[in-house]
Nucleic acid binder design. Sequence first.
DNA 1: ATTATTTCGTAACAAATGTTATTGTATCGC
DNA 2: GCGATACAATAACATTTGTTACGAAATAAT
Lengths: 193, 193
Amino acid sequence: MAHQPQESGIAGDHWWHDYADRFHRMEVPARTAVLREGEIPTRMFLVEKGCMRASLNQEGKDITFQFFFEGDTVASIESFKKGRPSPGAIETIEPCVLRYLYKTEWEKMVAEISEVPVLRTRLMDALFERTFFYMEHFCSFIRDTPLQRYQNLLQDRPYIVQRVPQHYIASYLGISPVHLSRIKGRLARERKP
Amino acid sequence: MAHQPQESGIAGDHWWHDYADRFHRMEVPARTAVLREGEIPTRMFLVEKGCMRASLNQEGKDITFQFFFEGDTVASIESFKKGRPSPGAIETIEPCVLRYLYKTEWEKMVAEISEVPVLRTRLMDALFERTFFYMEHFCSFIRDTPLQRYQNLLQDRPYIVQRVPQHYIASYLGISPVHLSRIKGRLARERKP
DNA sequence: ATTATTTCGTAACAAATGTTATTGTATCGC
DNA sequence: GCGATACAATAACATTTGTTACGAAATAAT
């Protein structure tokens, strides 16, 4: 799989691998929500094939704040954990094959994992990694220009640029689709004029 | 103390309280670094009194990306955990009384905590909370304007605006000090014209 | 008290970015 | 095939934000 596992979920080094057969299976067409804004999440997902995005609604505007690919775990994690309505939605971008667990199943799995020191360490490391990932993203927003953020994305996770529609990427970078288009145009012109 | 514990560190509901007496003590004057950029962190801190900030250096510019107050734990957490040079610095804003642990002491404490189910749960919840905090911050940058971010800060963590010099807050919000000044001026004029 | 240092506000101009509209192309469902 | 929909590039104009410069107020050091 040609992408960095650090991207999302509690992914990291796939702490759930030993438990993969507990997951249910589901096929979902492209552009379809598995969780809508305001719903209380009941399931956490695992992407077997395809890609997805998590979004927020801000005054009618749809803002993408995370992408998920093969191997990533997917959930509106805070709402899922606390049993509260999700502030955002989760939907497919490409047609997907998903695995999923219901909340009680997930809790049972985490409890079991926590009893085994080596697995527990892996789970906690994965949690740390997820935190580091968000810290890095946060800092990148304070420190970098939109151009730099786009170049970082191209370098660190090119598969996103290849597989995801551009306007989702624009909102992920915090800019308008028009501006992203400008940036791409400028980069292309700088390469071969 | 009049501030939300969610702010930083692995703070949350103070998982370390039972172990407070293991920490060393240190007094540090204002505007003094306890960790410089490029250093490998050897200690993690706890703010007993005062406040601090974590910063990055981007092409000569000093960018603040996190504040710490009484009760918060403070570390360049990824570098500390992985034994690598810190990408940023940590320094006091006000004169501080700090508590701290060396890395081996910290690892020992975490290991002990992990063996007690109730403490382990608290620690993991704290880790989740820290992740949620960064997620929320990240989303706020994609979704909100600088004005909205400043208003959120005023509402959610007013103690920051009260105790921290304005140019640190500006860089924390991702804008120039001049622009923050404009925003404040506009808000003041809107209140009583 | 007096002098540095730090902090904050304001103005004027430059650069970056958003908005709206238009066009062309690809893609999907039937 | 054909119409509908989604996607991307571009232009023109408006708005936001950064930069530089200057001065005033507050704070710290001597």
